[in-house]
Structure formats: structure tokens, C-alpha cells
Amino acid sequence: MDARDTLMYREAHEAAEVVARQFAANDSVVTALAQSLRVKPPRFIVTCARGSSDHAAAYAKYVFETQLGIVTASVSPSVTSVYAAPQQWEGALFIAISQSGKSPDLVRNAQAAKIAGAHVVAMVNVEDSPLAAIADTVIPLHAGPERSVAATKSYIAALAAVLHLCARWHGDRALVDSLHALPDALRAGWDADWSALSDGLVDAHNLFVVGRGFGFGIALEAALKFKETCGLHAEAFSAAEVKHGPMALVGPDFPVLCFAQDDDTLASTLAIADEFRKRGAQVFVAAPGMQGAGMLPVLAGLPALCTPLLIIQSFYRAASELALRRGFNPDVPPHLNKVTETV
């Protein structure tokens, strides 16, 4: 099988069209929500998600806190669904992110948040799902059917939905303009050559994925996809935290994949990558506009908030190729189902 024959590859390839479709279809509902949030800002923002969707929530935390100055925290679904502990969410914005909108624990949390007085937003791909039915506002992901077990286009769509809401809420003209440029950037970025990554990790057993700020959520996502599709044990760390213990594992030939965006975290992330290289580690760095040994190409020119979408799209393509080279079918990982209904 060629990587281009996998659902994972083909669905990741659809990301640009998904994002363009989503921005066009959702602009009225997102603009209306943003206007109401400006008039009556929430006390804080709560995100609720699992798996890849929770990695989108990690991205949302950095986006909302840096651009809007509103504290954003990820709630543990079990606190409400298992422990039935009431939460003081009055005046909060509660954002549930889900591809299927069917997981019972997310639905229960959304119900509890609504009863507690939060405004519930569902960023969901299935518009007639139980989660969407509960929400005060539904922001559809518009990813279309996703048949590969590995989420790709729906994850990028979730990041795009977060970015869209932030841009309209903040009212930053440059950020709004970047929404129009993003689909074309994704189309151009699809052909970026990341073969060095799939070549370099064919025989790997463990690796670190490092990111910081806007890039931390995609580091979490990439580590999950390495495990899920490639049978490769990977752990994600913040560039600010990896030196607090995990660095002791890094020695000669240990693989490290670093994600960086062109903002105030860039220098520290590149410094960590350089320190790993000096230890003899096998280091790959994805950063916009950078070239050289170990550098994975990423399109430059968009705001740093957009970079994670470009990087993770290229990663998905590389992961689909790596999975096949390691003897796995990325569309049907062992022991996994497309929808996980956690109670």
C-alpha cells in the first residue's frame, strides 16, 4: 500500500477545503457569538474534551489566554460524569470539543455546565449529535465524514474553529485576514517534504515531541499519533519543562521532534533543540521558514497562531507514510475504534 492510498493521507489532504468551508459556513454564528461575548465577557473559559479534541483544547488555552486575557482551563470530564461533583460554572463559557458528539461523559458535563449557568458551546463535527442538542451555540467543524480511526482533518478543523472564534471575538484585523489566507497556506504546505522524518524514525522505539505555547497542543497530538498509527512510543513535553527530568533520557541517537512557531517561544525551543543535538540526539525541527540539517519545512508568513495547523498537517502526511514503513495500517490501529464513548 502507498501512503496516498490510506484514508489518513487522503483525509489530512482535505484539511484546506475543510477549513475554507468551515470559515464560510460558520462566520455568521461565530460573529454573533463573539459579539455577545464582547458585550458580556465570561468570568473564565472551561474546555471539555478527550483525546485529539483535548489537544485542540490545549491549543485553545494558549490562544484565548494570550489574545483575550481570559483564564482558560481544561475540566476533567470524570469530575462530573463519575464523581458527580457540582461545579461553580455560573458566568463561564463552556466549550466542549468532539468529533462525534456522542461520548456520554462529555454530554453529562455539558448538561451540568448548562444547569450551573454556563454558556455551552459545542465544537462538533456531527451536527445532530447529543452534544450539539444540549449546546447553546453549535460551531460545526464541517470536516465531513472521517473514516480513518486516526483523526486528522477533524483535529485541524477544531483548531480552525478556535482560531475563528478568537479572531472574531478579539476583533484583530490582521488575525481576521489570516483566516482568509490559511486555506491557501494549507494547500501550499501539503507538498512540504518531510521525508527525512519518516526515513529517520523507521527503526525508532521511543522519542520526545517538544513544543511550547501555541505548539504544545500539536506536540501532544503528534505523540498520540505516533503511538496510535506507528506503534512508536512517544511522549510530549513543553520546551519549558523537558529539562526538568525528562532530558536525562536523551543521549546519542535518541530521536526528538520539535515544533516551533515564530513568536517569543522560538528562541527557547531552538535552544532546547541545539542542546539535544550536542548530546548526540537525532533532532528534527519544524519551524516556519527555517532550512538546514534536521529542519522540516514549514510555510512562513502567517501569524504564529496559524503555524500549528500547517505543522500538524505536514506531520499527518509524514505519519501516514511512517506507519506503512513500520508495518502498520494507519487507518485501523489495533484495538481502537473511531468513536470512544467514555462514561
Rank of each mutant, 00 (worst) to 15 (best):
residue 7 L to N: 01
residue 10 R to T: 00
residue 10 R to W: 01
residue 11 E to H: 06
residue 11 E to Q: 11
residue 13 H to G: 10
residue 14 E to G: 00
residue 16 A to K: 09
residue 17 E to D: 15
residue 20 A to D: 13
residue 20 A to M: 07
residue 22 Q to E: 10
residue 24 A to M: 09
residue 24 A to L: 13
residue 30 V to F: 05
residue 30 V to Y: 04
residue 34 A to Y: 04
residue 36 S to D: 13
residue 37 L to C: 12
residue 42 P to F: 08
residue 45 I to K: 05
residue 50 R to H: 03
residue 50 R to K: 13
residue 51 G to P: 05
residue 55 H to W: 07
residue 55 H to I: 02
residue 55 H to R: 11
residue 59 Y to H: 11
residue 59 Y to I: 09
residue 61 K to H: 03
residue 61 K to I: 12
residue 66 T to C: 10
residue 67 Q to A: 08
residue 68 L to N: 03
residue 68 L to A: 14
residue 68 L to F: 02
residue 70 I to W: 00
residue 71 V to W: 10
residue 71 V to E: 05
residue 73 A to H: 07
residue 76 S to L: 12
residue 76 S to A: 15
residue 76 S to Q: 10
residue 78 S to L: 12
residue 80 T to E: 10
residue 80 T to M: 10
residue 81 S to R: 07
residue 81 S to K: 08
residue 84 A to E: 13
residue 86 P to I: 11
residue 90 E to S: 13
residue 91 G to D: 00
residue 96 A to C: 15
residue 97 I to L: 15
residue 97 I to G: 03
residue 100 S to G: 03
residue 101 G to M: 11
residue 102 K to R: 15
residue 103 S to D: 11
residue 103 S to T: 14
residue 106 L to T: 07
residue 107 V to F: 08
residue 108 R to Y: 05
residue 112 A to T: 12
residue 113 A to G: 13
residue 115 I to D: 09
residue 116 A to D: 07
residue 116 A to M: 11
residue 117 G to N: 04
residue 119 H to G: 01
residue 119 H to V: 14
residue 120 V to E: 06
residue 120 V to A: 08
residue 121 V to L: 05
